[in-house]
Design a protein around this nucleic acid. Sequence first.
DNA 1: GTCCAGGGTTCGT
DNA 2: ACGAACCATGGA
Length: 225
Amino acid sequence: MPAEQPTAAASELGNIYQRLYQTFGPQHWWPARTRLEVIIGAVLTQNTAWQNVEKAIANLKKSGLLNLNRLCSLPPHQLAALIRPAGYYNLKSRRLLALLHWLKKNGGISKISTLPTAQLRENLLNCYGIGPETADSILLYALDRPVFVVDAYTRRILSRYGLITGDESYEQLRLLIENSLAPFLSDKQEPAVRVYNEFHALLVKLAKTHCRSKPSCSGCPLDSR
DNA sequence: GTCCAGGGTTCGT
DNA sequence: ACGAACCATGGA
């Protein structure tokens, strides 16, 4: 393997983060109250608008089921009915139960929180229905681990600005962004968790604000240079 | 009526 | 190794 060279992307990502933050301000993700709620939301929001996820979580809350043991003792078809507004409800019911059973089997959220990040990531990826993005969302937003969450928006936006080719693997992109932000982190004395959290949310914000809702995509915060 | 959202798995080539 | 089909609701 050739050593990684500092690329144009690496030197510009910190800049992009600052521009987005100045334009949109803090996004305050993840919009959930408890760690269990974040974990459930991470599965429910797979390829699904967050608005629909909120309805599903509201159903669980209303039924007093936002509790690891109660959820684990629920028949799959019953959980499916409750999370129906989130779409793919049969599939997501199975995925949620697989994840929640893993959590329960390993002593609950507080217990697994003592594990090192690499081991947590591996365990999460071994759960049915948990891929890299969902695993990293849980690590970053529920367990406060310094892991950047790569999603489709990240690819689109970085490709759009010519910072990546677009055919990089998930891992390549995640490491590129984490390494690129490292100098910025030490300069600003900011915790990585906070910056990864905001940067991911800001990229989603940018994608939703421009280029889709506006036909001409005028006034993108990253355009003037 | 069409498109698509804060993905992942499975099954053909 | 890669692409396509599949899963499904709700809002624009």
